[in-house]
Nucleic acid binder design. Structure first.
Length: 490
RNA sequence: GGCGCAUUCGUCUAGUGGUCUAGGACGUAGCCCUCUCAAGGCUAAAACAGGGGUUCGAGUCCCCUAUGUGCUACCA
């Protein structure tokens, strides 16, 4: 092994579902790992006992799998650098915190949370810059021993050097520099023994030999704090890439009140993983000035850290819809068939035994419907009148009342004419021929005939192509619907 | 309040000092196709946040302002 192995990670905290922003972060890590032939690692950052929700772990994992992101190491797959859950690595954090303590690079803090909160609020009230006052730094060894012995709780704070320029180079934001004097002696180990974020990420990224960190821009300001840890422990630091934020369409931070933002909900709404990934990739990344459609394979080839932009982007549902429509049209016919059949069976268990019948039908339905639909759930709706009897809404019943059309004559002629077609030749071609014949006979535009039949056959003024639809529905059902509509308007 | 980051059509973006009368995509509008709706094709409207510099020349470099946003927690 001459080249150092490239290792990336996605490190969600299990406090909710996988949302658009984290999915993109995961995806960019995954893409880059695939592109350079590196490893992609999944790590669960569950150090917040309060907000932790165990059930969200499987939701996050399922969403990732659904999107097609696989990982080489993780809590479920294992690996050489485990455990992959921070809650199972507590002894490691303790060990390194102790090391810093021993080296005088960290110190114990016995201040109560209430006191600290009060101090901060007071400083803020008079618009003052607040930083921990290092009260506990001046504690003598005896005082510390006595407090520990009497059972006083303490946290461990990093002793942040003053007037030190902390800098690193970010692949997106360029050179980033900050003076350490602006950073307080932040807590690395809580009094309950849990590490805080800035400490545990740094430790884990080192221990897990992560070479490239790709994460949200909200961590840009945190990076110097982590740099402090790398320095104090004499670890080298990874290569950083911070991704611009994804905001809701109103320009504010994406949150639950903005509706469906979880990958889970897009899946339920009938989005395809290809579409979601393509859309997500375009938020902050572009390949050239023209291309918008990318297969996963192409993205792996073309993805590049250097062509990520800095500007936060707003989420645009319309464009996602467009892409989804595109991918529904691109889908192989049997894949689409399979997806649709599964959906239909899920809704109606009786259909389980009729898979072949469904397949046969769908083979005819798909070519005339797929380009009219933008989501799979939209697709399910358009399927209904092909398989079920239709009920006429009031709108459908009254559709022609104000129009000067002899609708009954049209319907009756149609019935007569369609009845004449032989059962075996009840196909699009003959249906069209008959209906055009009626139009000629009644001296009406085909449009009028089609409009009437459409309402009768489909119940709505918009449907898939009429002649094909009539063929698929079949002679019997078509005649039934025509007569039924005739009755309903009588 | 302190410390950062950002700002090109409504939205996602191309753009790295002259090739920009600023390109593409979604959306919008119109036309074509057409049995409706889509899809597809064609066309159109639509942007360099504002102000100062630097330069022969600025969307591109610098400064200020405005706006947005992040961190400033014993959240991540």
């Amino acid at each position: 092994m001459t080249e150092k192995e490239i290792r990336l990670r996605f490190a969600p905290s299990p406090t909710g579902y996988l949302h658009i922003g984290s999915a993109r972060t995961a995806f960019f890590n995954w893409l880059y790992a695939k592109k350079v032939g590196g490893k992609f690692i999944l790590r669960i950052e569950d150090t917040d006992v309060e907000r932790h929700r165990e059930d969200t772990i499987s939701i996050i994992l399922d969403s990732m799998k659904w999107l097609g992101m696989d990982w080489d190491e993780g809590p479920d797959t294992g690996g050489n650098y485990g455990p992959y859950r921070q809650s199972e690595r507590l002894d490691l954090y303790k060990k390194y915190a102790q090391k810093l303590l021993d080296e005088g690079k960290a110190y114990r803090c016995f201040c109560s949370q209430e006191q600290l909160k009060k101090n901060r609020e007071e400083a803020l009230k008079v618009n003052e810059f607040y930083k921990y006052d290092r009260k506990c730094l001046s504690l003598t060894q005896e005082e510390i021993s006595r407090k520990i012995k009497s059972g006083e709780k303490f946290s461990i704070r990093l002793l942040v050097p003053r007037e030190k320029i902390l800098s690193f180079s970010d692949n997106v934001y360029g050179n980033f520099e900050v003076n350490s004097s602006n950073i307080e002696d932040y807590i690395i180990l809580r009094s309950n023994g849990m590490p805080t974020y800035n400490f545990s990420v740094a430790i884990d990224d080192c221990l897990m030999k992560i070479t490239h960190v790709i994460r949200g821009e909200d961590h840009l300001s945190n990076t110097p704090k982590q740099l402090l840890i790398y320095d104090a422990l004499n670890f080298g630091h990874p290569d950083f890439t911070h991704l611009p934020m994804i905001l809701a369409s109103d320009g504010h931070k994406l949150s639950k009140r903005h509706g469906s933002i979880s990958i889970e909900s897009y899946r339920e709404e009938g989005f395809l993983p290809e579409a979601v990934l393509n859309y997500i990739a375009l938020l902050g990344w572009s390949y050239d000035e023209k291309t918008t459609i990318f297969s996963v394979k192409e993205m792996v080839e073309k993805f590049d850290l250097k062509s990520i932009n800095k500007k936060a982007s707003k989420f645009d549902y319309e464009k996602l819809l467009y892409l989804n429509g595109h991918y529904i049209r691109e889908l192989k016919e049997d894949s689409l068939e399979e997806i649709l059949i599964n959906k239909l069976i899920k809704k109606n268990d009786n259909l389980k035994d009729k898979v072949n019948f469904l397949k046969e039908k769908l083979a005819k339905i798909i070519p005339i419907t797929r380009e009219r639909v933008k989501t799979i759930s939209g697709y399910e709706k358009i399927l209904v009148p092909f398989f079920n009897e239709i009920n006429y809404s009031d709108d459908a019943k009254n559709y022609f009342t104000k129009k000067e059309i002899n609708i009954k004559e049209i319907l009756k002629s149609s019935v007569k004419s369609l009845e004449n077609i032989d059962n075996n030749s009840f196909n699009t071609e003959n249906i069209e021929k008959e209906l055009r014949g009626i139009a000629a006979k009644l001296q009406l535009n085909l449009k009028i005939i089609a409009e009437v039949l459409r309402i009768a056959i489909w119940g709505e003024p918009v449907s898939p192509p009429l002649f094909e639809t009539i063929e698929i529905i079949g002679k019997k059902a078509t005649l039934y619907r025509l007569k039924n509509y005739l009755k309903s308007i009588a």
